[in-house]
């Protein structure tokens, strides 16, 4: 298990995503899967930067549980206002250029890139857990 705690602001995105990427690399994921895991992590973190702490500053904690050559579980925790990213609506993927809305893609990418996703509110924390298996069950 390894953990990083940083202020929940966009300036720390690179450090946080880099931390997850390194955990994923050590777990044994291919370069292609690393980019997908980075994408799911960035989208989860940016949601927290944007919504978790509207009035005060706060922190985000990212914990990686790794089983070499098997799976990576990423737990992303903040102490902000209750916010379930899984409750966000899916974007309209078929709209043309004029109709297409800006936004809504973040949660869609998280769902696409990970195998299991879970949200829970516990002791004043938002906890989002993403699980990715090395050998995806088809």
């Amino acid at each position: 298990m390894s953990k990083i705690i940083l202020p929940a602001t966009i300036e720390h995105l690179e450090n946080l995503v880099g931390f997850v990427s390194e955990c994923a690399r050590k777990t044994g994921f291919s370069n292609k899967r690393l980019k997908e895991i980075e994408l799911a992590s960035e989208e989860s973190l940016v949601n927290i930067f944007n919504y978790a702490y509207p009035e005060k500053s706060g922190e985000v904690t990212v914990t990686c549980f790794s089983q070499k050559d098997t799976l990576l579980k990423i737990e992303i925790m903040d102490k902000g206002i209750p916010f379930d990213p899984l409750s966000l609506p899916e974007p309209d993927l078929h709209a043309d250029l004029s109709e297409r809305k800006v936004g809504g893609l973040g949660i869609f990418f998280i769902r696409q890139m990970v195998d299991e996703i879970q949200y829970r509110r516990e002791d004043g924390n938002n906890i989002l857990t993403l699980t990715i298996f090395i050998n995806k069950a088809v």
């Binding site: 980019k35 980075e38 994408l39 940016v46 250029l97 004029s98 800006v102 893609l105 869609f108 990418f109």
Partner: peptide, 20 residues
């Protein structure tokens, strides 16, 4: 370009709409 996220797509969409 090695990596793009929804933020990157958003900036492309905004630019494409401006140009249209």
């Amino acid at each position: 370009l090695d990596y793009i996220s929804s933020a990157g797509l958003r900036s492309i969409l905004v630019t494409a709409k401006k140009l249209k």
